[in-house]
Write a protein that binds this DNA or RNA. Structure first.
Length: 285
DNA sequence: TTCCAGGAGTCAA
DNA sequence: TTGACTCATGGA
């Protein structure tokens, strides 16, 4: 008897940890424990096989290598061990977030998602991107009764107005979306941004209306795989007090520079571990 | 009712 | 360059 199941293997992976890590907003946990994962022009249904493997149950839309989406080339156990050697305080943080991976998501979808994240709650961000896909994305099929949609193309998004985005719940960010997405369609260098150095990439992202330092670093980290980035959000600001000994009213710039000085080229993974652990464990004590 | 959220734009100093 | 203020929205 042959086994025709499609299995993706990694050094470590935990779908639930990744789903709750705040980097992806179009993952749906199904009643049977499987996950429907939508990203860009395609989607996949996965089931956790064991702590090193997931099974592909179904794929939707454009054919793609989903292992790349999960950053299969990187050994997270080895990277994490290196972090703990540099800072032993990270040991329980890493252990409590076992299976976390930094995704390589669609740059356009990540841009829109994190523009929406400004001064917003994660459930509302999810609600907005789901509505956007349902209204303006191409239907890809159905999984366990759930309709699957592609994320709208840049061409489709660039036809929308501020009012269209507000109707989906974007609030005051509606005018940012219209300006940025219409402008992006007119640029001929956007597809080559993945070739830019980190600083240049951050600079290009920050040139877009509605994208500041924090959102630019999230996009660079969660779409372009730039591990040298360290987004400073409200959680990291709170955490800077016990973790680095900074005063509660320290300026954002001071906090960013302190974390950059404390950790090296893999500080993006440190940020994600700290963010996950602090949010889900309610503190560092 | 008030506070807050994976912040950014605007403007004055 | 820095800090104060404002911006929709809805769950806690």
């Amino acid at each position: 008897m042959t086994d025709n199941r499609q299995i993706m293997c990694f050094d470590s992976i935990d779908l639930k940890v990744i789903a709750d890590s705040g980097q992806c907003f179009r993952w749906v946990e199904m009643a049977d424990g499987s996950y429907l994962i939508c990203d860009g022009d395609s989607a996949v249904a996965l089931r956790q096989e064991n702590e090193k493997a997931v099974e592909i149950l179904e794929t939707f839309g454009a054919k793609r290598d989903w292992a790349t989406y999960f950053d299969s080339a990187m050994n997270y156990e080895a990277a994490s061990e290196e972090l703990v050697r540099e800072d032993s305080r990270l040991a329980p943080i890493v252990a409590g977030s076992f299976g976390l991976r930094l995704l390589r998501q669609s740059p356009l979808e990540t841009l829109v998602t994190f523009m929406m994240s400004a001064n917003n709650h994660i459930p509302r961000i999810k609600q907005f991107v789901h509505r956007l896909a349902e209204h303006y994305g191409v239907p890809l099929g159905q999984w366990q009764g759930v309709d699957v949609y592609a994320f709208p193309s840049l061409e489709a998004l660039a036809t929308l107005t501020e009012a269209d985005f507000k109707a989906l719940g974007a609030g005051y960010r509606g005018r940012y979306f219209e300006a940025t997405l219409k402008g992006l369609l007119q640029r001929d260098d956007y597809d080559a941004w993945d070739q830019l150095a980190d600083d240049a990439l951050i600079g290009q992202l920050k040139s877009l209306m509605g994208v500041g330092q924090k959102v630019a670093e999230c996009i660079a980290l969660f779409a372009y795989g730039r591990w040298g980035c360290f987004p400073v959000d409200t959680w990291i600001k709170q955490l800077a007090v016990p973790w680095l000994g900074l005063p509660p009213n320290a300026a954002e710039k001071v906090i960013r520079e302190a974390f950059y000085a404390t950790y090296g080229d893999q500080r993006g993974l440190v940020q994600q571990y700290l963010f996950y652990y602090y949010r889900h464990r309610g503190g560092l004590t």
